[in-house]
Computed example of a mutant assay.
Amino acid sequence: MKFSVLGPLAVADGPRLVTPSAPKQRQVLALLLVNANHVVPVRDVVTELWEYDPPRSAVAAVHNNVMLLRRALRDDRIATTDQGYLLRTRAGELDLAEFADAVTSARAWLSEGRHADAGRRLRSALAVWGGPALVDVAVGPLLQAAVDRAERLRLEAVTARISVELVLGLHREVLGELAGLVHDHPADEGLIRLLMLALYRAGRQADAIALYTALRGRLSAEPALAADHPEPEARTAELYTDILIGDPLLDVPALARVGP
């Protein structure tokens, strides 16, 4: 059986799709999947489905939705405990677990200096995603938190992959993607540093300098953005100085200098 949450919600039993269509069943299933192999208390399911205004029949409705899910899955996948429900998944069945495992192994290879291997592993991990997490599920507060967490992990994996590609000298290949990411995440100085370095290595020193200047201006103009630090981070300022003077070390792959 295959379970997908990184994109549309989907459950496949071999060639047969068994994804529930009822909105609340989908919501319950998604909550169990993002907490796979861990107990989800009944009160958490109630909170997810009705936030902070549940009907009197909320617990009974939860039990009924779980019963219907059990029938759809045709397996002893969902266990009932004293605290709540637990959905069991096995290795290779859940895309979220597959993604997390791949990122963990890639980071281990990075620590060993195996950049090419880590890059391939990160690309395969990101290929698991079929779109925004749970894109077709109505999410309550708990699922929203899980979606936000998954998307943060995805961005971290993308950033790590681009860092590796810079180490491998692929700065021209990542320029467009990096520019888009910085546009979408203007406060992420890890991404800004990567883009500054890529621009510099591509012979666009002036653009790298302008990017830093724009960051300083944005921090001074938007107090909320600069709540933690009114000036760019030390690593960003150091990279800016190195770019200004044309430090030859910038042409040498050095992940530690610019990583997120």
Rank of each mutant, 00 (worst) to 15 (best):
V40E: 02
I243P: 02
A237L: 10
V40Q: 03
G113M: 10
R90M: 09
L142A: 14
V39P: 11
E165N: 14
N65Q: 13
E231H: 04
V66A: 04
L49W: 15
Y200G: 14
V128N: 11
N37M: 02
D101F: 15
T236M: 05
E98D: 15
D44C: 00
T81C: 03
P223I: 00
P15R: 02
P55V: 03
V39D: 12
A58Y: 04
P223Y: 03
D53H: 13
A36G: 06
E222C: 04
L244W: 07
H185K: 10
A91V: 09
D13S: 08
D136T: 11
G180C: 14
K24Y: 03
E238D: 08
D95N: 12
P253L: 02
L250N: 06
P186G: 03
L155T: 06
L191K: 02
N37V: 01
S21L: 11
V135K: 13
T81A: 04
D76T: 04
A125Q: 03
L239K: 01
R154P: 01
H115L: 12
E98H: 14
D117S: 15
Q144F: 07
R235H: 10
E238M: 11
H38R: 10
E151V: 02
A221D: 11
H171L: 00
V103S: 08
D117V: 15
T241H: 08
N65L: 10
A179M: 07
K24H: 12
V34D: 03
T81H: 04
L168V: 01
D13V: 00
R74S: 15
L194D: 08
M196K: 04
G84T: 14
L110F: 05
L249D: 14
V46E: 14
A138K: 10
L68I: 02
A157K: 01
D184M: 10
A61Q: 13
F99T: 07
N64E: 12
M196R: 02
A22F: 01
T19M: 08
L181M: 02
W50L: 06
V103R: 15
L170C: 05
R121Q: 15
R107I: 05
P223S: 06
L255K: 03
L191C: 06
A179N: 09
R71P: 04
L181V: 04
I209C: 11
R154I: 05
I192L: 01
L143V: 08
V147Q: 09
R204V: 00
L31W: 05
L195C: 04
G140K: 02
V252I: 07
